[in-house]
Write a protein that binds this DNA or RNA. Structure first.
Lengths: 295, 295
DNA sequence: TCACAACATACGCTGAGGTTATGATACATG
DNA sequence: CATGTATCATAACCTCAGCGTATGTTGTGA
């Protein structure tokens, strides 16, 4: 950095070289012509050579001046490009939402169109996370788990109700209906790896006051998204969190099996990363998600 | 240019990003730490985003900060390179000598080794000019012609004596010696195009108090360098300016024909382009050429 | 828990760099 | 060749942008 001359001289020279006269450069830089003259003279003293040949009017750029002009054009151009990109990104009002992948896939993405319509001036960026991954930064953070009693600003999303669902085609094949079914003779879809974090069948049966059938058939999956896709494909019955799969229940792709349901302390919770200090954009997105989840 | 933020902010950020702390950047920039802090804060306000994450100590650069650092590194790097080259060239002490091509070819170039040995710290640049060309700029300017009575600092180089010379092989073939020769039965080498500027045979005979032989054979050339080369090749007899062809006369490649000689007002004159205001390097080169021409 | 280092902010001060006025000079035009 | 115009350089004067110091806040490591 100590190798560079003063930027006031470089910018004065750059303007004069592009405009052709010191007078025009002064107009661009919003200073007087003598100010430009002195700046360039100081630069020439520093460099030890002339950048303009003053024996002509207007002054003619020298070869050294042309060399420097090219370097400044390229160097300043690169900096200008990056600065413009940074400014534009800063002005484009991006809000990042981080959520578990199941929530993203089945609740958030289906509603993204509505969300974006509600905030046409914002760019919504979704970061999906799998269970067990380290928390990633977002403006709005949605997590699954037990309530954090210290996070007073955390909002619970969706219901605490957990109930079995299945594809109607599956029930048909089994000669069952949502009203009349036998859980002991169906295939239960499970996610054993996430057992400690998720509401699983044994817990559900116990919470529903029922005895889990012995020797029941099951299929296990490593992610909730895969499990739900298997259910949608008619592979068995699985547990749904109240609210997460509403869109499938509404379209009839899935049906809720009638009968007892269970409740869980676990659930989805949403916060703004900077809490009450978060900007208005973030607060508005958080509010929208909260309201939509309460419908 | 208006797109760029202030360079005091950019340079402060650049130093902080490279050093890792604002405190270290302050040391590089020779300002206090609060000065760096304010500069970077002003830059961040201009850009509309944070370049450092202050929730850590030392502050951690953000992604936008990394983007900007890369652009500054590249942009400033290019400018630094060119500035260094310009500074080095300015310090390398170049002196340019402009002279007629004949003078260059037969007097200056043969002595260039001595000249460069005398000034090892200087770079001597020779610009050779043909007769009739527009004057080209040089620190030391050597011209041929009549003395310019207004150029009081102009120095006459070499003798005013003009005399015939030839290759000894040519004289041999003609059965002549430098002492015993007959100019009416030789081939005279001429340069008719430069007649008005140069000392030609008719003028020489007249100045020597002799009658030019009628019907003498001659060969004409467009440049002095070509004429001299023809003479060296034994093509005839030609007029030499006292001093210009000394090296050939000393080695015996050419011999002076004894007998009358002529004098001319015309000659070679040397000046420093900026006169007495010229730098010491230029004055020294002019002095050396002047002294060498007087030997 | 404490010491230290790093960063942010308030306040007062000054000289770097601005302006205006004016002179010098190259260039175009009549 | 004289004249007007535009461009650049320099002198003199002025002021406020940006500095330093003092001090407060906070993250980090022992």
């Amino acid at each position: 950095m100590r190798q560079l001359p003063g930027f006031s001289g470089l910018t004065a020279f750059y303007a004069a070289a592009r405009h052709g006269t010191l007078t025009a450069a002064a107009q661009e830089l919003n200073v007087s012509q003598p100010a430009v003259s002195r700046r360039i003279a100081a630069l020439e003293a520093d460099l030890g050579c002339l950048l303009f040949d003053r024996s002509h009017k207007p002054a003619q750029i020298t070869q050294q001046g042309r060399d420097l002009l090219q370097a400044l054009h390229s160097g300043f151009g690169q900096i200008e490009n990056t600065v413009a990109q940074i400014r534009q990104a800063a002005q484009s009002r991006v809000v990042t939402v981080t959520a578990p992948s199941g929530f993203v896939a089945f609740w958030l993405i289906p509603r993204l169109g509505q969300l974006e319509e509600s905030f046409p001036d914002l760019t919504i960026r979704i970061i999906s996370q799998e269970y067990g991954e380290a928390a990633r930064p977002g403006d709005v953070v949605i997590r699954f788990g037990l309530p954090d009693l210290e996070a007073t600003e955390e909002r619970r999303l969706l219901s605490t109700e957990v109930f079995p669902v299945a594809s109607p085609l599956y029930l048909d094949r089994r000669g069952m209906t949502p009203e009349q079914h036998d859980l002991s003779s169906v295939t239960l879809l499970t996610m054993e790896a996430a057992r400690s974090q998720w509401h699983d069948w044994p817990s559900w049966f116990q919470a529903a006051g029922m005895v889990m059938p012995r020797g029941v058939r099951s299929l296990d999956f490593s992610s909730y998204a895969m499990l739900v896709n298997a259910g949608l494909a008619g592979q068995g019955v699985f547990l749904a969190w109240g609210g997460v799969l509403d869109t499938f229940l509404q379209t009839g792709a899935l049906v809720r099996l009638h009968g007892p349901s269970a409740s869980s302390l676990r659930g989805y919770f949403a916060t703004a990363r900077d809490g009450l200090a978060a900007g208005q954009d973030v607060q508005q997105i958080l509010d929208w998600i909260t309201k939509e989840a309460c419908k």
